[in-house]
Structure formats: structure tokens, C-alpha cells
Amino acid sequence: MIEIKNVSKSFGKTAALDNLSFCVEEGSVFGLVGSNGAGKSTLLRIIGGVFRAESGEALVDGENSFENTSVKNKLFFVPDYPYFFNNSTVRNLAALYRGIYRNWDEEYFEKLLNIFPIKKNDKIINMSKGMQRQAALILALSTRPKYLLLDEIFDGLDPVVRQLVKRLIITNVTDNGMTAIIASHNLRELEDICDHVGLLHKGEIVLEKELDELKLGIHKVQIAFKGDVDEAFLDEFDVINKNRQGNLFQLTIRGEESELMPRLEALEPAFVEALPLTLEEVFINEMEGVGYEIENILR
């Protein structure tokens, strides 16, 4: 289990993480989403043992990962821009990892080499961005990590490889009990793979929930009335967003469908419909809720 306990980190006067706390259960896929500069990559680097938290603790199986080689042996961090040596190929980089990571799985490495459409003996730095990410992921998975930390892993991957990556992650989670934390802006991909989501904004966690709970807990409601209607009825609901065109309301309301619908139907509308939000819509709504100036940005 990964426990983030009151973790703070700042760069100069800028606070990147501010008293952050949450847990990532073993065998889960945790999606880390948030605005630009929210602190997602910083958090991954702290968990990965690259950075040290200024206060608080990021515990992996109860231990701090910073300068802790046995903890680091259990995890693998793939940054948003992975580093490769000038002359390294996937094969010779594997030789380095083989001697360093205790759980290196040569058979699985060979298998992954055959699965991914990547040239094994080409210099990695000459490869495309997507290919480099594939190389990084092959090496990462071959170390058989208990915890896999991925930063913008879907960036640059074609749709086929994206599916492959997602499938491999899920296989490792289900078969080997691996835990993955994926920081990404690609919410569509996260939606497919994550079971938990943490939303970061300005170094703070806005929400941390199971994805289903999150998605089913907020609904997009369209409700139309025949005559004039007083907006006071909205006070009875946890409305996050409201858009009114005459007697037609487009609302984002917090709550389960089974609980919302009877209450909405009790208002005797001409039409009512409640649809679950996509993760992207949840993200936008929640971010708006914490003062992210979406309107200004989109305008």
C-alpha cells in the first residue's frame, strides 16, 4: 500500500504539494489527474524516491522510498520524459537493469520485446516519442515492479499501442497484484483503466474516490418544465453547475441516479433525464468547484 501522509513540497516560494494525504490500495490502478502544475509529477517523484518530501511521509509498504534501495527495488518510475543514454538500445539497457533490479524477468522481457512493435537493437534516442515510451514501459514491466509509477505514459502512443499498454497494466494488476499510479491528462484513457482517481489542484487533493463512485455520484441532468418555474427548487439539490434556457435546465448535480430521479420527477417536469458524467466532465466540474478559471481559459 502507498500512504501519502501530510506531504508538502515546495520549489522556492512555490508550493508544489501542500499537506497532501491519501492512500493507494494494493492491486489498484490509481489515476492521478489535475490541472497543469498541480503537483502530479512531483508526487510521483516523491513516491519514486527521486525527491524528498519537505514534511510528511510518502510510505511504500510502510517505508519511505527516499534513499531506500529495497523499497525502490519494488517500484519503477517512468517519468514524462524518460532518459536514455546516447548509445543505449533496449537490449543493452536491459543489461544494466538486470544487474540492478532483483526481480528482473528475462523471459517476460523477451516476451514484451516481441509484443511491442519496437526495434530491439536500435538506439533508443533515435526513436520517436511513442517508441521511447514503449521502450521505457518494456523495461519497467520487466523489472516486475510491485508499484508502477507512470507519468503521461499515453502521450505519443498510437491507439493500438495505447490499448496494448492498458491491457498489460491490467494483466499485471490482476495476475501479479501490481499497483499502478498513472498521472495523465488523458482522462479518456484513465477512465478505461483506473479504479481509483485522485484529483489534484494547486498541490492539494480535491477529491480521491473510486472511479465508479465518482462517476455515478455526479449526474448531468436535463430537465424541462411546461410553465414558469421558480429556481428555488435547485436549493434542494447539490448543484455544481447550472445552465438555463427558458424552461430548460441543464444541471450538474451531485448524487446517485436512484436517489436523484424520484426527487426530480416529483417536481413534475415535462422532461427529465440523468446521465453519468465522463471523467473529463467530472474533472471540469470539480475544477470549477475549486476555483479553476475554466471559463476564462476556454474563452
Partner: peptide, 16 residues
């Protein structure tokens, strides 16, 4: 001194 190299060596299970 390179951010990318720092990520690489910093995350390896080898002490600084």
C-alpha cells in the same frame, strides 16, 4: 544537473 538524468538515477534502487 540534468532533470531527466536525475529522474533516471534517482529512481534506480541504488543509493546516491
Amino acid at each position: 544537473h540534468s532533470k531527466r538524468k536525475t529522474d533516471f538515477f534517482g529512481s534506480l534502487p541504488v543509493s546516491r
